[in-house]
Design a protein around this nucleic acid. Structure first.
Lengths: 330, 330
DNA sequence: CTGTTAGCGCATTCAG
DNA sequence: CTGAATGCGCTAACAG
């Protein structure tokens, strides 16, 4: 290092001040001299070299299926602040392993590029590094460290809400992805709904988690749904629910007049649709945040056993897209 | 390496087959033997060590202001596919330097963690590494390598569209960020509008690029806007336009009956709002994609001069939020 | 076609 | 309190 030369000290000394371990090792005077030299030379420590020497990559990855999805984006934002906060000073970076809707590229995880992984893509687990710190996000079926959402509570609130409004037949529009969180949403809703209203019927349908897909699907099925006697549709995600809203609007179906609509997530756009969407709010940002903090701990102490999974509350947010069952009005 | 030992070869040989440079150097037989050993031992090459040895980090960063913004998310998605495609096999990773609305953390760029940077955050430039490959996204004011959007063309189309509908007074809701792309949007629109309609008036207003902020702003100003004689509002971004739509709806203002609304970007949600948003479509995904491809080239050959900036076309998409000027109907 | 060797830039012992 | 030496795991010349 020429920084050492310029300051007239050894590389070790420079290393100490750079890493904040100068305390009790380096005299304040030389420390300042080193700092000056660093500033003068515009020296920046090489992350790769440091990683090689320490074994810490100072990077964590977020594995998700689609950054373009508002929910995922919120999780990412939360994870970013969380990891920054938890490793204050050490500064871990967030590596996004989520591009399009297709399989994410897990190779970098194997390539020892990261110290840990946040997984919000159920079923996708990094191979080749069995002891890599991992925390699962909203994947109750996964083992190990995880932070989840209590979707069941919200789903039950939604069931009660619709029951109170006089609905007896609801169409459940599920996602095409076989993830446990979706199974849980459906089960909790259907069970509670059946418990609450005698003779309740929940019809199942499904489509991709995609605005356009949901819109087209709804536009096409709108008439069928109504003919079947359904007075409300509950979508597995807000993206789908908003698509449904658009599809129904296009088909001339009044919401909530003829059909009530609700979703899960409470993404920002849910608040500004017309009508505003009734939805089970899931704390995406906090999910990411808590997950990152947990991951930082696991990285710190990989040996620690999983412990109780963190469970974040979900609750129903009632807005304008749900109203009295249409058949009551006839 | 124990892989070398297990295969009975030297580390160099292993390195060759791992890096696909075995052609003409290693016999197919030993190559297979090495591959077997790798598989058996579950060996993965250490990215840090490789980076240290080669000087290539195999990572690029995307500097943006808010991953939660749909436009940014699309840019990121495009960049991810672009970088993957451009470096096929070499596989660069995408590092996201964008969390909340606050200043992104540029430190990693300085820490030599990346081979290059994609900047979609005008004004923010990585310090300390003057020769780092950089490509600017949609920042016409920036020098060097860049891929931009021809927002002016779209803005003029929008001006013509509103002029044709009989609008003479439009309120322009700008962003609070002093970025050249926004200045260009406003200028191109206002100039063309003034050229097209005699006595045209464009009133300026502004608010944050935030759904809730725009909604509240619109709800509060709705009456004032109308009293001022404005018959249309053009927002700098779709996020703001959608917020305005919600705010006006809440205030009981009919769109496009009393006030027409238009934006810029054509984010996915613009298509499903009610009414669907008329907007100047900006190819966000391609912006990211092309930017990544360009960056890969610059990384490949840093000495090459910038050349002509890539300019992507923007065009108006007319949907339901714009209609005849209200004063014509009176 | 394959093995040997010298760093890449830094953090960390161990002596001084 | 400070300096010199060692190695992290890998790649790229260079020999053989």
């Amino acid at each position: 290092m020429d920084v050492a030369a310029r300051a007239g000290v050894s590389v070790a000394t420079v290393s100490f001040v750079v890493n904040g371990k100068a305390e009790g090792r380096v005299s304040p005077a030389t420390r300042l001299r080193v700092l000056d030299a660093i500033a003068a030379l515009g020296y920046v420590t090489d992350a790769s070299a440091r990683a090689l020497a320490t074994g810490r990559r100072r990077q964590v990855a977020l594995l998700a299926h689609d950054m373009t999805n508002p929910f995922t984006a919120q999780v990412a934002a939360g994870a970013a602040t969380g990891i920054a906060e938890a490793t204050d000073g050490t500064g871990h970076l967030l590596l996004l392993l989520a591009a399009g809707l297709d399989e994410p590229d897990v190779e970098p995880v194997g390539a020892a590029t990261v110290d840990g992984v946040l997984i919000n893509y159920p079923g996708t687990l990094p191979a080749g590094r069995p002891d890599l710190p991992v925390v699962h996000l909203d994947d109750p079926a996964a083992g190990g460290h995880q932070v989840s959402l209590d979707v069941a509570v919200g789903a039950r609130e939604l069931a009660r809400h619709l029951a109170d409004l006089g609905h007896r037949h609801v169409l459940h529009l599920d996602s095409n992805r076989p993830w446990s969180t979706f199974a849980e949403r459906r089960a909790a809703f259907a069970d509670e709904f059946a418990r609450l209203v005698p003779g309740a019927v929940v019809t199942d349908d499904r489509c991709d988690i995609d605005l356009a897909a949901a819109r087209d699907h709804a536009a096409q099925r709108a008439e069928g749904w109504q003919r079947s006697g359904a007075t409300a549709v509950v979508a597995a995600t807000d993206v789908q629910a908003l698509g449904v809203l658009a599809g129904l609007h296009g088909a001339g179906v009044a919401v909530p007049g003829q059909l009530s609509v609700a979703g899960f997530d409470d993404i920002p756009f849910a608040e500004v649709s017309s009508p505003p969407l009734t939805t089970v709010a899931l704390p995406a940002r906090e999910l990411g945040h808590r997950g990152a903090v947990l991951l930082a701990q696991v990285i710190e102490d990989p040996a620690a056993p999983p412990g109780e999974p963190v469970v974040l509350p979900a609750h129903l947010v009632v807005r304008g897209s749900t109203g009295p069952a249409a058949d009551l009005l006839r």
